[in-house]
Design a protein around this nucleic acid. Structure first.
Lengths: 193, 193
DNA sequence: AAAGCCTTGTACCGATCAGTACAATGTTGT
DNA sequence: ACAACATTGTACTGATCGGTACAAGGCTTT
């Protein structure tokens, strides 16, 4: 049973780690703060993540990617109703980012030099998001070229909404922007479907 | 003349400081790296910026704000031709952010806890950008409510384009997104003017 | 030249950084 | 109960952090 226990405890520390990285960034999150956030001592942290901060962030990224794959990408790629999948995506994303009060760890990693180590995963995350959304739009009869552009615009728009809402401290602006993005995609599906 | 020299040297260090903060973030930029970036020793830096890193960032923010006020906000607020002002804004912004290869210092500050000290200036920067763009659209006969929404969407969209382009390492995606945003604003002016 | 101020490099401060070592304490399997 | 192993807290490392002190040098003004 021991191998299972290890995985469980390691996994259960990820949400707290993610929250700490989210709020302070990769460089800004010290081991002391990570220890306090998780409730685990330094010894425990290095027991579960021998690679240190880098391995912790790697695990957090995989965890986030897993959540998105299940909750966002899969419905977009395999859902029967494109319009419903798009609507669900925006709802889930709004809840996940708490209307922009919660920052996108992946997006932030790409912004400064400290995150260059993870550039591969950052790139893959956004590429998959865009391609699965574009695929969904294509299922909704939107022409491939336009679908890709709209998907790119939507994913980019969500990231921008997070930046703006955080800067202004205003959840309403996030919701207005996301609402417009959703309408734009649904209109395209309506128009071509 | 001495007072003029002080201002000059302090001012001339700002671009290098801005670049360092841009690349490493506020927390990630160490005094050693700031010293190397500016070519000034620690003694000189603290001579020009007695308040340390915080005062340096404050000066960088004021410098950025001054540049935007002159190059972006003023034409939007006082330019005679709204469509031309909007076009110029997107061109200048694309050049300034190097098609997303260069990060927005102000936007990044709002994202993590380290930048909370500057939240007032961050908020003011985005608020003014949105309001001056909205005013420009209103001059172009776009109804006030719609003008504000479109302005919000454009500013947010630019920030998102930076995040996405940096993450993907793809300048083309920045240009595609910004092109769409520009068309959206120009269409609105055409439609109502 | 001499006095005064500006500028700069260097040495130093305590605090904190990421990471390691390891002994003490579980916990599990037999 | 006992042995093997997983987990944890604590103490430590050298490096680097932001910031200070200050003396040496340069420039300007008289």
């Amino acid at each position: 049973m021991s191998s299972k226990r290890i995985l469980t405890d390691r996994e259960s520390a990820l949400p707290a780690l993610a929250e700490a990285f989210r709020e302070h960034g990769f460089e800004g999150a010290s081991l002391a703060s990570l220890s306090k956030a998780t409730g685990l001592g330094k010894g425990s942290l290095y027991n579960f993540f021998p690679g240190g901060k880098e391995e912790m962030m790697e695990a957090v990224l995989e965890n986030i990617d897993g959540w998105f794959a299940k909750a966002i990408f899969a419905p977009l790629e395999h859902g029967p109703d494109p319009a419903a999948a798009v609507t669900a995506m925006f709802d889930d994303v709004t809840a996940y980012f708490r209307s922009g009060q919660r920052v996108c760890v992946v997006g932030c990693l790409g912004l400064n030099a400290a995150g260059e180590t993870f550039s591969g995963k950052v790139k893959a995350y956004f590429a998959r998001w865009i391609s699965s959304l574009a695929h969904c739009l294509e299922v909704g009869k939107v022409p491939p070229g336009l679908a890709l552009e709209l998907a790119e615009e939507a994913v980019s728009g969500i990231q921008g909404a997070i930046v703006l809402a955080r800067a202004l401290g205003d959840e309403a602006s996030f919701q207005r922007i996301v609402h417009r993005l959703r309408s734009s995609l649904l209109d395209a599906i309506d128009r071509h479907g």
